[in-house]
């Protein structure tokens, strides 16, 4: 039988691939793409718990809908910023932190 654990293992896999993508990213856009993957893993987890074990399945699904909207807003703003910045210099490559020290 497929259980919530199956879905969590799948989501963990997606999340970790996304995390690796973030750690390994060479440009801001790649970070955004990898973060999208991580957020999708979160949604998968929540939907799976909602229809397997959650006490209030409908409320978890409603939250996932909200999360999707929020992620879209966040990504929209992120992409606008990246585009705006790239028009002025090459700093969409993360390497561009020349003037700011870590």
């Amino acid at each position: 039988m497929i259980t919530a654990a199956h879905y969590t293992v799948l989501a963990s896999g997606l999340f970790c691939i996304g995390l690796f993508g973030v750690l390994n990213a060479r440009s801001a856009l790649r970070v955004v793409v990898a973060v999208e993957l991580m957020l999708n893993a979160v949604n998968l987890n929540l939907v799976a718990y909602a229809v397997t074990s959650g006490a209030r399945p409908a409320s978890a699904l409603a939250f996932v809908l909200l999360l999707i909207v929020i992620a879209a807003a966040e990504v929209g703003l992120a992409l606008a910023l990246v585009v705006a910045l790239s028009r002025r210099s090459d700093i969409t490559a993360i390497d561009g932190y020349a003037t700011l020290k870590g």
Partner: peptide, 15 residues
């Protein structure tokens, strides 16, 4: 650069 750095940290910490 500050904006970009903050943005990336927000994205990662949020996820």
């Amino acid at each position: 650069e500050a904006a970009l750095k903050y943005l990336l940290v927000v994205l990662v910490s949020t996820s």
